Simulated scan of single mutants.
Amino acid sequence: MTPAARVQTAIEILDAIARSARDGGPPADAIFAEAMRARRYAGSKDRRAIRDHVYAAIRAVRAAPPSGRAAMLALADADPDLAALFDGAAYGPAVIAAEEPRADTGIASTALLKLFDPLVGKAEHAAMLARAPLDLRANRLRSSRDELATIFPEGDAITGLADGWRLAGATAAVQNPAYAEGQFEVQDAASQYAAIALGAEVGHTVVDLCAGAGGKTLAIASATGDEAAILACDTNRARLQQLAPRAHRGGATRIEALLLNPGQEAAMLADHIGKADRVIVDAPCSGSGTWRRSPELRWRLTPARLDRHVADQAKLLDLGADLVVPGGKLVYAVCSIIAREGRAQVDDFLNRHPGWTADGDILPAGIGRAAGGGFLLTPGHDGCDGFFLARLSRPC
């Protein structure tokens, strides 16, 4: 493919991604993969160049653009070499016309910026869209961080994490045989901090209420030496089914998976009411803390979707609270930097549940900043995904 043809292909893919963002369709990675399958003539260099164009535009443009061309023109205005490829050549983009519309650039729309937690200022914005590193967590049931340092000597320890090891984002760590042997998992530092904040101990009964594919479940099993009974729940069958093979690979034997039917969660968990020493609720959210990895999420968030997330979070918090034994603890976690999903959600919970209290000092020294009844982690301040964490204690 010619350089101009690569640009035109990127424009067409951006059109599809913008439509999907507006309609709640597949994510950008899935759309890109499908587009490349339909263009088998594109070589590996072509695919890399097209992907670079697509994601450069997604990172630069603050909201779903009117067209892929408008998004690419916003880049071309700042890049003369890119603008020169709009020359009308065969298979390339048409010549740029006078007064042609451009997509707005920036971190996020003005309306979305107003929703950020007060701790997230302009100094944080660049880090929120920078490329993320690759964080690993040593599995204590199979290995240690010292062994990871031997396997990946180019990495570095992660502040406050005894099992955390950080690599450059482009590292293909999962292709190393140590991964197949269960010696480590890929897990962002923020997620590892959440597992630490839970404070699960040997002999505890733990419920992971929104387990997904089990990243935090496995971290808890590792931290407790496989000596805690863990119930991993989710309503997403496809995601939860990934947990069993991961647990087998990692040597975690005391995890029970429970697929919940949407709307019937409380009834299906009735036998567990008031019996869990620790509950973690990693609730569905806007994903605004993960824009480094999925920048098109900025294009997807609408007021209605945010309202649904906030309502679901409150229901899950109340359900999780019912599972906690008197004197036990509940960790609330969302990969969000939006105040309604963080500090405001915890304030509302404490108002609904008299006697419950928010714990302090739940994170390693220097990690996170106090945000109401919880703590906010951000890429700029903490070098990890944006995350809100709170640990709530039930009265005895």
Rank of each mutant, 00 (worst) to 15 (best):
E296T: 03
E154N: 04
V331A: 10
D188G: 05
I58L: 14
Q192P: 05
A178C: 13
V331I: 10
A213E: 07
E227L: 12
L350Y: 04
D15T: 15
P379G: 04
W299K: 02
V279M: 01
D347A: 07
G160A: 14
I96F: 04
A229T: 02
A4S: 12
S144C: 09
A49M: 09
D163F: 13
A270N: 07
D226T: 14
S286V: 10
A267I: 10
G214Y: 15
V281M: 10
V207Q: 00
M268H: 08
D156L: 08
A138Y: 00
D271M: 01
Y41H: 10
A283N: 13
N261G: 06
R40P: 10
D188Q: 13
A57T: 09
R142W: 12
R298S: 00
L316P: 04
G373T: 00
A138S: 00
V279R: 09
M128C: 12
L260I: 11
A90T: 06
T2Y: 00
D226W: 11
A132C: 11
G155W: 04
R145Y: 05
I31T: 08
F388P: 04
K216F: 05
V310A: 00
P101F: 06
R254T: 01
C335I: 03
L350Q: 08
G250H: 09
V207G: 01
R391S: 11
G374T: 08
A371E: 01
V54D: 06
V61N: 15
G372N: 11
D77S: 09
A162G: 12
A172H: 14
A63G: 13
I367G: 00
A358G: 14
V7G: 15
G250C: 04
R6D: 02
L330W: 12
P177G: 15
Y193R: 07
I58T: 05
R142E: 08
F116R: 01
M1L: 06
C210L: 03
A89V: 07
K114R: 03
R298F: 01
A162N: 09
M36R: 01
W356Q: 02
P27D: 13
L240T: 03
D382C: 09
R142M: 05
A98Q: 09
D81C: 10
A252Q: 00
A35G: 14
A197Y: 07
H248C: 13
G203L: 06
V54Y: 01
T105Y: 03
D117P: 06
T253W: 11
H125A: 08
L377C: 14
V95L: 08
F184I: 06
A390S: 09
V186K: 10
R22C: 04
Y55A: 02
L301D: 02
A76V: 03
L209N: 07
G225V: 03
I50Q: 06
W356N: 00
P395K: 01
A371I: 00
S294E: 15
G164R: 13
K114E: 05
K329M: 04
K329D: 14
A108T: 07
A127V: 05
L243V: 11
R137F: 06
P284C: 07
I58C: 13
G88N: 14
R305M: 02
P3G: 10
P379R: 06
F116H: 00
R391H: 08
R293E: 14
L269E: 00
A21H: 09
